[in-house]
Simulated scan of single mutants.
Amino acid sequence: MENAANTARQQGTTTGTELVEVVLPGIVEPEGLQIRHRQIPAPGAGQIVVRVEATGVSFAEQQMRRGRYYDQPPFPFVPGYDLVGTVLTAGGGVTPGLVGKRVASLVKVGGWASHVVLDAADAVEVPAGVGAAEAETLVVNGITAWQMLHRKARVRQGGTILVHGANGGVGTVLVQLARAAGLRVIGTASARHHDALREMGVTPVDYRAEDVPARVRELAPGGVDAVFDHLGGRSVVDSWNLLARGGTLVAYGSATTRDDSGSKQLPVLKILGRVWLWNALPNGRHACFFNVWEGRALGKNRFRARLSADLTQVFEALQRGEVTARIAARLPLTRAAEALRLAESGTVAGKIVLVPDTGAGTSAAEAR
Rank of each mutant, 00 (worst) to 15 (best):
R368P: 02
V78D: 10
L281D: 00
R36Y: 04
K108S: 14
G67H: 09
E366K: 04
G111P: 02
L219Q: 13
E136T: 10
H150R: 08
A287P: 00
A121N: 15
R302V: 12
Q34C: 13
I35Y: 05
T334Y: 04
A54P: 14
L83F: 03
K270G: 00
L98T: 14
R285N: 00
A90P: 07
R38H: 13
G97Q: 09
D82S: 11
T312A: 14
G253C: 02
D119W: 05
P79W: 03
V50Y: 11
L307W: 01
T334R: 07
R179G: 12
R51A: 15
A365F: 04
G32F: 14
H164L: 14
V130Q: 09
G93D: 14
V224E: 04
R234H: 05
G32K: 14
R208M: 07
T17V: 14
V205S: 13
A251V: 01
R245A: 11
R258K: 09
H230E: 01
G247R: 08
R285T: 01
A180T: 05
H115Q: 05
Q10P: 02
A178V: 13
R234Q: 08
T86R: 12
T14W: 15
I35M: 04
D206A: 02
A128N: 12
A317D: 06
E2N: 15
D238P: 00
G299C: 03
F290K: 03
R304C: 08
T362N: 01
Q157K: 10
R192M: 10
V117I: 12
T15I: 05
L24S: 12
A365E: 15
G97H: 03
V185H: 05
A4C: 11
E366L: 01
L219N: 11
I271M: 01
L331S: 08
K351S: 05
Q176S: 09
R66W: 01
T95A: 14
P356L: 13
A113K: 08
G246N: 07
E31L: 01
V87E: 12
W276S: 02
N141L: 02
G284W: 02
T137H: 03
W112G: 09
A329M: 02
N301F: 06
A5C: 11
V237G: 00
G110E: 02
W146C: 07
L24H: 08
T362R: 05
D211H: 03
I48T: 13
K152D: 11
Q265C: 05
V84Y: 12
F228M: 03
W112E: 11
L174A: 06
F75G: 09
T55D: 03
V212G: 09
I40T: 13
N141H: 07
R38E: 09
L83V: 09
E294A: 15
E31P: 04
A153E: 09
N283F: 00
P79V: 10
I27P: 04
L281H: 00
A121R: 15
P213K: 13
R330Q: 15
S105K: 07
V84L: 11
V173P: 04
